[in-house]
Amino acid sequence: MGNEKVNVTVKINGNEKRAEVEPRTLLAHFIRDNLGLTGTHIGCDTSQCGACTVLVDGQAVKSCTLLTVQADGSEITTVEGLGQVGNLHPMQQSFWEKHGLQCGYCTPGVMMAAVGLLQQNPNPSDEEIREGLEGVICRCTGYQFIVDAVKHAAQLMRETEAEVQLVGEERL
């Protein structure tokens, strides 16, 4: 048993990818090794550190605790899809501005988890941000500037959304 490969199709950062994988392939390894998107990192074996967090169908999940076959047919967003230099996502912009990272290893996962948090709570308090980051571990920052960054990103995102709405209304 266990030698049959399985076909999977995922839409990753907007691009459709097909591949044949061993059923045991972890999504984190698939993203890194098969798709070459190395921004998603692995930091522990037990689903604690959250460095591997990506969005699957819009929700933050730990890609080291998901088999690739489970994500078949899903839309996946990794840090590479969040925003690019010159066109940064508010979360990336805020992590840069507020010094929310030091070594940068946990950062992609933390940002994806924070994006997931803001989807569920667009205007969190400091305490809610700290609680909301339960699923990530950062060893460098002591979290303070991460909290500042997430708060700032929430504000930027609310402002952008307001702008988008305004533009929409004007068009009406």
């Binding site: 929700q59 933050a60 999940v61 998901l66 988890a113 569920q120 909301g132 339960e134 699923g135």
Partner: peptide, 9 residues
């Protein structure tokens, strides 16, 4: 339970 990522899945 757990954290946001775990609760999502």
């Amino acid at each position: 339970i757990g954290d946001i990522q775990v609760r999502n899945r």
